Amino acid sequence: MKVLEVILNVIWLIFCGIWMAIAYAVAGIICFILIITIPFGIAAFRIAGFVIWPFGRTTVERSDAGAPSCVGNVIWMVFAGWWLALAHIATSIPLFLSIIGIPFGWANLKMIPISLMPLGREVVSTDERFGWG
């Protein structure tokens, strides 16, 4: 299964992963420049790492996430999340136009929730998520 994950990740990287990772990195850099939004920048870079190589990994809610994460997610959604979600939609449309791209377009749409609300989530291996590793 690991070989399949690598193949899927390489195809993903070429067709949409690099572009989406750049979008998250730009959002992260802007957040770091503004200093008070550094926690958002950290979340943006964490998502960029996930978006560039997503197959074999997933996101889960952190058990220690509370009200600050909720408030932070609302702020994130207003200032950055909505345009990153739109970028996922725009990237998925051309992928859906070919048979081979359909699974990648669907994977792109599955990333919209984390693009809208990244705080209080962490990226884990699918093996860890399901207790296989």
Rank of each mutant, 00 (worst) to 15 (best):
V3H: 12
L4D: 05
I7F: 07
N9T: 13
V10G: 01
V10S: 10
I11A: 15
I11M: 11
W12T: 06
L13Y: 07
L13N: 13
G17C: 07
G17M: 13
I18Y: 06
W19Y: 08
A21N: 02
A21D: 15
A25I: 11
A27V: 03
G28V: 07
G28I: 08
G28T: 06
I29G: 03
I30Q: 14
F32C: 14
I33K: 10
L34F: 03
L34E: 08
L34Q: 14
I35F: 02
T37M: 03
P39G: 13
P39C: 13
F40N: 13
I42F: 06
A43N: 01
A43C: 12
I47V: 15
A48W: 15
I52T: 15
F55N: 08
F55K: 04
R57P: 01
T58I: 06
T59I: 14
V60S: 04
R62M: 14
S63P: 05
S63W: 04
S63H: 08
D64H: 06
A65Y: 15
A65S: 08
G66T: 06
G66S: 11
G66W: 08
S69K: 06
C70N: 03
V71W: 12
G72N: 10
N73D: 05
N73L: 02
V74K: 10
I75P: 00
M77W: 11
V78T: 07
V78N: 10
A80L: 07
A80M: 09
W83F: 12
A85E: 15
A85P: 10
H88K: 09
I89N: 11
A90W: 04
A90R: 13
T91Y: 01
T91L: 06
S92T: 03
S92E: 08
I93A: 12
I93S: 10
L95N: 00
L97F: 05
L97K: 09
S98E: 00
I99D: 04
I99M: 03
I100L: 05
P103W: 06
F104E: 01
F104G: 00
N108Q: 15
L109A: 01
K110F: 04
K110T: 09
K110G: 01
M111I: 05
I114V: 14
L116V: 02
L119M: 15
R121C: 11
V123E: 07
V123F: 08
V124R: 03
V124H: 08
T126E: 07
T126Y: 02
D127R: 14
D127H: 14
D127P: 14
E128Y: 11
R129D: 05
F130W: 10
G131Y: 11
G131N: 12
G131C: 12
W132G: 00
